[in-house]
Amino acid sequence: MSGSEILSTLLGSEVRGDLLVLFHRNPGLIDTVDGVARRIGRTTVAIISEVRELLVLGVLRQKRIGASEVVFLDRAKDRELLESVANHLKTIRIGEER
């Protein structure tokens, strides 16, 4: 995935932005989708598809705890994606300067 595709996916919606802010501010957050929705003041229905996008991208991971499925930040993948985005933005800036 290119830097611009990653950027488009990460910031594809306001909800996705809220989710990323939540997990970046609280990188140790481990919770169900219901719990995550509550923490950003939204309903589960409103965020479920956005959470799936971030799971597919790999920035969030999922695991089972007891009877619940929880999501959490994959810090290594998050760093990798942010680096790709940063490199992409640098490329744009260099292109504009020329």
């Binding site: 919770d31 695991k63 705890i65 007891g66 009877a67 619940s68």
Partner: peptide, 19 residues
């Protein structure tokens, strides 16, 4: 160091300590 933020119900649910 790690800050782990979770729900009390998940802490109770993880009978095998998997949280």
């Amino acid at each position: 160091f790690r800050v782990i933020c979770t729900s009390p119900s998940l802490m109770l649910e993880s009978g095998d300590g998997s949280l």
